[in-house]
Computed example of a mutant assay.
Amino acid sequence: MGRTIVITGGSAGIGRRVAQRFAESGADVVITGRTPDRVERTAGELGVRGIACDAGIPAEVARLAEQAGPCVDVLVNMAGGNTDLTRGSETASLEELSARWQANLTANLMSAVLTTSALRGRLQPGGAVINVGSIGAEYAASSYGAAKAALAAWSAGISAQLAPAGITVNTVAPGYIEDTEFFRGQLTEERRATLIDSTHNKRAGNPDDVAGLIEFLASPHARHITGQTLHVNGGAHTTR
């Protein structure tokens, strides 16, 4: 049996492609998601294990840890998404503003914190934790961007804690990626064109662009890369 890979939010979009690539390499892959039917269907299609789990709910994460098995080699914290896209555009009160921010913090930060904490004792030397952030963290006026910025900061900090055990921790921050459900049908053609025009290579990203980097970070070739945020955005945001 190959390595055990746990991918939260692995039933669709980028997470599904990550799961597929690891499964094709012979790994024992566990995917999670909030919707049991979708998790079961995707797991069957990919030939992986599926566990329904809302990664923002402590009791469900604890159950996931027990079901995942005693040893985990790679954890990919993919679960998240911009919860504002499901709540409409109006904020009527401070209570609603608080609820909006808490929803994105739970979905994008606490989901990774809870899952990593639950599986920490099962992570094996030579393993990797890979957190999926966003280009939105660079423009963090929104609750989604702020949550992803916090995720990257936490990721860099926990890297130092896990490194003595031989475990790397990195954040992968995608830009605009097509063929996902991220925008929930709310992306206009004008906005799409603007996002593509902001890149250097004038194309949208695709799930394989992100999945390939995640696969590399989980490989023996990336053992001296830790505590980093690696951007996958075609140059829409550059670092030096």
Rank of each mutant, 00 (worst) to 15 (best):
E215F: 10
A140R: 09
A65H: 01
S155L: 07
A152D: 05
T4S: 11
S98D: 13
T180L: 11
A211D: 06
G50Y: 03
A160E: 11
Q228R: 13
A204W: 06
A152S: 06
T226V: 10
E96V: 14
R21L: 08
H224M: 11
G121T: 03
N77W: 03
I135W: 03
A112T: 03
S134E: 04
A204V: 12
E138N: 12
F183V: 13
N233L: 06
D209E: 11
Q124V: 15
G185T: 07
Y139D: 04
E190G: 12
R3N: 04
V169D: 01
L114C: 06
A112C: 06
E66S: 14
K148I: 09
L217F: 05
A137I: 09
A65P: 12
T8C: 03
Q20K: 15
A137F: 09
G234D: 04
E215H: 15
V48R: 07
S155F: 02
S134L: 11
G212C: 02
A43D: 01
I57E: 12
R3L: 14
T8K: 04
G235S: 00
F22Y: 11
R223W: 12
P164N: 14
I5G: 05
H237P: 00
E60C: 01
A150W: 10
G145A: 07
V113T: 04
R21C: 00
A19P: 02
C53D: 07
Q228G: 08
N108G: 02
A147W: 05
A153L: 10
L109F: 11
G126Q: 09
I7G: 08
E190P: 01
A68N: 02
R38E: 11
A59T: 14
S25W: 10
S142G: 11
G9Y: 01
I196C: 03
Q20E: 15
M1C: 03
T83R: 14
G44P: 01
V132I: 15
T180D: 06
L119R: 07
I225P: 00
V172T: 06
R49L: 11
G9H: 01
W101V: 13
A150P: 02
S159F: 01
A163W: 10
T115A: 10
A173Y: 04
A140T: 07
R87N: 06
I14H: 02
T238C: 13
G80P: 04
Q102C: 08
L119N: 06
L97T: 09
R240I: 00
N82S: 14
G9T: 07
G44V: 02
Q186N: 09
G26A: 05
A153H: 02
S89H: 08
R192M: 13
L64T: 12
Q186M: 14
V72Y: 07
G145N: 05
I130N: 02
E24N: 14
T226L: 10
E178S: 10
I5P: 02
A103K: 05
M110F: 15
A147N: 03
G185N: 13
E24K: 15
A65M: 00
S98T: 15
V76E: 03
Y176E: 02
V48H: 11
A173H: 06
G212A: 10
H231R: 13
T83G: 03
P58C: 10
